[in-house]
């Protein structure tokens, strides 16, 4: 079976090689080789039909997921997202104030979006609350990807400062400890 599947023409070229080169101009070998030309001609119709199918499916408005399916997916995701970790910001006799880890990380992401050359990735936040519930210390662990070729230490420092301002402004507590890890580079 395996031999049959990698069949070769008399000239030594495999059918796979010819198929892979279908949409390219003939190689110098193919220009002279009748076997290759004949094989190419035989497969031309399949190639054309394949390309036509790919293109028509791609541009056919019927070949898309209906909006109500997308809405169902997002509605379920939204409902399940509410289970994210809660962090206690304040606890008094008037009641507690909690914030979801997600609400905090969205502020951090927004801060990161303002810094060119950085894409925020995963964000983990821990909170240590004082026994009297008067003070709260955050530990923010943010992973980022940076653009290749930028000054990483300066950019990361800029991000740290941005977060140090954004958390008090947006949440009303200090940013606490901000750990930033560069885990990847992306091409610009």
């Amino acid at each position: 079976m395996a031999l049959e599947d990698t069949r070769r023409l008399g000239c030594g070229r495999s059918i796979d090689q010819i198929w892979a080169g279908m949409d390219q101009p003939p190689t110098s070998h193919e220009e002279d080789c009748e076997l290759c030309q004949a094989a190419k001609a035989r497969m031309q119709k399949i190639k054309e039909a394949t390309v036509a199918l790919r293109e028509s499916d791609l541009h056919n408005p019927e070949m898309t997921l209906p909006a109500e399916r997308t809405n169902s997916i997002m509605a379920l995701a939204r409902a399940e997202a509410r289970r994210s970790k809660r962090l206690v910001l304040r606890g008094t006799e008037y009641g507690t104030v909690e914030i979801s880890e997600q609400a905090l990380s969205s502020l951090i992401r927004l801060a990161a979006a303002a810094i060119p050359g950085i894409h925020s990735r995963r964000c983990r936040i821990e909170v240590q609350s004082d026994a009297e519930m008067g003070s709260t210390h955050l530990t923010i662990n943010l992973r980022v990807a940076t653009a290749s070729g930028i000054d990483i230490p300066a950019t990361v420092e800029g991000l740290r400062q941005k977060i140090n301002k954004a958390i008090p402004a947006g949440v009303g507590i200090d940013a606490g400890t901000v750990n930033i890890t560069v885990e990847d580079l992306y091409d610009v």
Binding site: S105, S120, C123, A145
Partner: peptide, 13 residues
């Protein structure tokens, strides 16, 4: 896309 995936992993809708 890697960054978008990472954010989605964190529950970013």
């Amino acid at each position: 896309e890697g960054s978008i995936v990472a954010r989605a992993q964190d529950g970013d809708l």
